[in-house]
Amino acid sequence: MEICHYPVMHKEVLEYLKPVSEEPIMIDCTTGEGGHTALFLEKYPSLKVIGLDRDKEIQKKAIERFKDYKDRFEPQNCWFNDYLKNRESDSADMILFDLGISVYHYVESERGFSFAHDERLDMRLNAEQELSAEDIVNIYPETELANIIYKYGEERYSRRIAERICRERLEKRITTAKQLADIIAAAVPAAYRYGRINPATRTFQAIRIEVNKELDRIEPALKEAVRVVKKGGRIGVITFHSLEDRKVKWFFKDEASENNTISILTKKPICPSEEETSVNSPSRSAKLRIVEKL
């Protein structure tokens, strides 16, 4: 099935992120299939977008999608924190981070991001790195595994889940997403197993974050983004869970109050409209924060 990512809060992103020069440059730090990039390229005919993504497979979709834009779209296969660290100061009009994992990864990538599919347990965005989700669940010590599940998944049954994983892996190596999901379900109380959300949801989130070091990249990237964006230029960040949003919120607050380098344009984060959530239910948890460089 061919998946096309729905650009979350696209109306709000277009409203807040605006060029400050005649030949503007936008850095889309999490391009994916290019949902947001497409909107900006269409709206601003003189705009060039540098599209970053660490996943070569999903980036191929964006490259194909924007082939007619020629040099107005420049793909870069890299982590956004690494790219921004090496980019010159005051060289971009707009910088956008959409920190959500694309629907492509859950439905089409076949890398075990979703507990709904019987796929290999991988979860790597960078296929060239060694550490995978399979390594984590089969190698990490029980205490470390429990701490990761609690810290990155905010899972109250983290110790029970870690204990069950370590017990099961003694009998048979854990290699698929379904296998892991079944182990998690067996580890938690029945009431939790049949609750509002799948009991594997938080553990899968935690393992994915650990595999890709997602939270570790946010603050260094935002620090460099403030340096890279031009005076009057804006940075937008879309988050999808409290761990991400907390890091973004406090970085911006500290940068505005202590360093006085930015103005926070969204004192409270912007959330999706009822209209948007009705057609794109995964957007329900999204929050958008915008700052402007002074």
Rank of each mutant, 00 (worst) to 15 (best):
K151T: 15
M123Q: 03
P141D: 11
C78A: 15
F66D: 00
S109M: 07
E134M: 11
W79L: 14
G100L: 03
G100F: 02
D118W: 02
R156D: 07
I183E: 04
A162N: 05
Q179R: 14
W79S: 12
L121A: 07
Y106K: 01
K151C: 12
E171M: 14
E155S: 09
H105R: 01
E163H: 15
G112C: 01
K178V: 11
R173C: 00
D118K: 09
E155F: 09
F73W: 01
R65N: 01
T176G: 11
A181K: 00
Y83T: 05
L131F: 07
R65W: 00
E163P: 04
W79D: 10
L180K: 04
D182L: 14
K85W: 01
E134K: 10
E142S: 06
D82G: 02
N126D: 15
Y140H: 05
K172T: 08
L131Q: 11
D93T: 08
I149W: 04
Y150E: 09
Y140D: 08
R72T: 02
E130W: 08
Y157N: 06
L170K: 10
L121Y: 07
A116N: 12
C166R: 06
D90S: 11
K85D: 10
D122I: 04
Q179S: 14
H117E: 10
K178S: 14
I101C: 04
C78I: 15
S158M: 02
R120W: 06
E130Q: 12
D82L: 07
S109Q: 09
Y150G: 05
I148Q: 02
E168Q: 12
A116G: 11
L96F: 09
L131R: 08
D71H: 03
E163N: 14
I183H: 05
I165V: 10
K172W: 00
S102R: 03
E134P: 01
K151N: 13
A181V: 01
D68S: 15
L96W: 07
F66G: 04
R173F: 00
F73S: 00
E134C: 13
E155V: 12
C78V: 15
R156C: 05
E171Q: 12
Y104A: 08
T143W: 10
R173I: 03
F73L: 03
R120I: 15
D98P: 04
M123V: 03
M94T: 08
E171A: 13
L121Q: 04
A92M: 03
L96R: 05
I184Y: 02
Q129R: 13
L180G: 03
F73K: 02
P141M: 08
F115T: 03
R164K: 14
L96G: 09
Y106H: 03
F66P: 01
R164C: 04
I139L: 12
A177R: 01
E64Y: 10
T143S: 13
E144I: 14
R167Q: 13
R156V: 05
R72I: 07
Y140I: 06
M123H: 00
K70Q: 13
S109Y: 02
D90Y: 11
R65Q: 00
W79C: 13
D90P: 07
R124E: 09
K67H: 11
G153I: 08
L131W: 06
R169H: 01
F113I: 06
